[in-house]
Amino acid sequence: MNSLPENHPTEAVKALMLESDSFSRWLGLQIDEVGPGYCRLHFTARPDMLNGFGALHGGVTFSAADSAFAFACNSHGRQSVGLTVTIDYLEAGRAGDVITVEAREESLKHKIGVYQVRAVNQNGAVLALFKGTAYRTSNEIL
Rank of each mutant, 00 (worst) to 15 (best):
21 D>P: 07
22 S>T: 14
22 S>A: 11
23 F>T: 13
23 F>E: 12
23 F>G: 08
24 S>N: 12
25 R>F: 06
25 R>H: 13
25 R>N: 10
26 W>P: 06
26 W>L: 15
26 W>R: 14
27 L>Y: 07
28 G>C: 09
29 L>H: 08
29 L>A: 14
31 I>H: 01
32 D>P: 05
33 E>Y: 07
36 P>I: 12
36 P>T: 12
37 G>N: 10
37 G>T: 11
38 Y>K: 04
38 Y>M: 07
41 L>K: 08
43 F>Q: 09
43 F>A: 15
44 T>C: 13
45 A>G: 02
45 A>F: 05
46 R>E: 01
47 P>F: 01
48 D>K: 04
48 D>P: 02
51 N>L: 01
51 N>H: 09
53 F>P: 01
54 G>A: 02
55 A>W: 03
56 L>E: 02
56 L>N: 03
57 H>I: 00
58 G>D: 06
58 G>W: 08
59 G>V: 07
59 G>R: 06
59 G>H: 05
59 G>F: 06
59 G>N: 08
60 V>N: 01
60 V>C: 02
61 T>M: 15
61 T>S: 15
62 F>D: 00
62 F>L: 08
63 S>R: 04
63 S>K: 04
63 S>L: 07
63 S>N: 07
64 A>K: 12
64 A>P: 07
65 A>Y: 03
66 D>A: 09
66 D>Q: 09
66 D>M: 08
